[in-house]
Design a protein around this nucleic acid. Structure first.
Lengths: 203, 203
DNA sequence: AGGAACTATCTATCGACATAGATAGTTCGT
DNA sequence: ACGAACTATCTATGTCGATAGATAGTTCCT
């Protein structure tokens, strides 16, 4: 159900075709909510059916058209309502933690490998999230730029600050994950003896 | 697919009936991996079919039986293999962050309410996780006690330490979430002016 | 003119999970 | 002896999302 609201939120910046939306979900919004095109196109059609968005046919080349969707008043209302409705924190499903809990069944080297990948993954993500945060703060991001144009200057601070704040949450979480991974590596060294690969090279 | 391995991991402690497993998923393991009984029973049957576990009929009352499952050698091997296989970090889907990113569309009071609930939820969870961590460290937890009995003393430290470590990850994450929520409340105060409810009471 | 890369959209299948039951035997207190 | 609460298991339906395509027009380079 959240896909719908992600789309509405996206469309508050500017009208988009399905394809544009798909691309946004590959970057920016995609860092916070992922969806494949096979979900996006049908959802847009459904939303149009319910009057949350409006599609208009736009010429595309000499023999073709594309559909550009804009958010409607009902759409904005739906988004607002959703934001005012408490979310239910669904049950947890945390593979990394589950695996770590049973590391006594792994050989130490794969346990280490698990954590190294954990650290690498989050290191990479944190990098991306930090870049995104910068892009937002400097209004370099196209979606932010569109918002700056569409909405009055007194809203700009809010628009930017909330998005930066969201990314800060991701970054903080990512950093906690990295920290946890490091602690895990130390724990394995303590319990199973230091890695054989240790001291081999220092990169 | 992880449900299967959660079940295998559970069964390394002691043989269980489906119902026992369901209860475990309501507590301990359930904090790390949730599953409803409608998933558990069929999965156990499938796993038996594949030889990862073995079911035996146990008398239950005068006119009935229940099935108690034990892990097989193949089951242990499957668990080990899984632990040695890198997990794919699936795409992100983070409702809290997504909502926060568009708080300019919420009225300040619902934005605050969002964050207060976030803080409350994680405060509660952190409490639970800390309790679980304690129960594990003191071997008060039944599943841990069973493990202590089944495996030699030299493994006990490992068994306990990895489980505590897993919970520490959850706790750290939870605390980061609480911290993030607090920062968000401050941010809203800064951007929208302090809450009307502020100063009303200090609990 | 041809082909590669991109834009635009749609469909089909499958597994995981949520939700909501139904059924039946058992234990235990009053 | 009865009912409530618990144990044990099973089924059915629906949504979400992953995966893997298929199709077709467009732009742009060579």
């Amino acid at each position: 159900m959240s896909l719908r609201y992600a789309l509405l939120a996206l469309l508050t910046a500017e009208p988009l075709t399905g394809y544009d939306a798909v691309k946004r979900f590959g970057g920016s919004v995609g860092y916070v909510w992922h969806a494949p095109d096979s979900q996006i196109y049908p959802e847009l059609r459904r939303m149009e059916g319910e009057g949350l968005i409006e599609g208009e046919q736009v010429r595309w080349g000499p023999n073709s058209t594309k559909t550009r969707y804009s958010i409607t008043g009902d759409g904005v209302r739906a988004l607002r309502e959703w934001l005012a409705t408490p979310i239910s924190y669904g049950p947890l499903r945390d593979v990394s933690r589950m695996r770590a809990a049973y590391f006594e069944w792994a050989d130490p080297e794969s346990a280490r490998e698990n954590l190294r990948r954990h650290i690498d993954y989050y290191t990479e993500q944190v990098g991306r999230w930090k870049d995104m945060r910068e892009a937002i703060l400097s209004a370099a991001h196209p979606s932010i730029a569109a918002r700056m144009e569409k909405y009055p200057a007194e809203d700009h601070e809010r628009i930017v600050a909330y998005k930066a704040f969201a990314y800060e949450g991701l970054i903080a979480r990512g950093e906690a994950e990295i920290e946890w991974g490091r602690k895990g590596l130390n724990l394995i060294d303590k319990l199973e003896g230091p890695s054989e690969a240790a001291g081999e090279s220092e990169r």
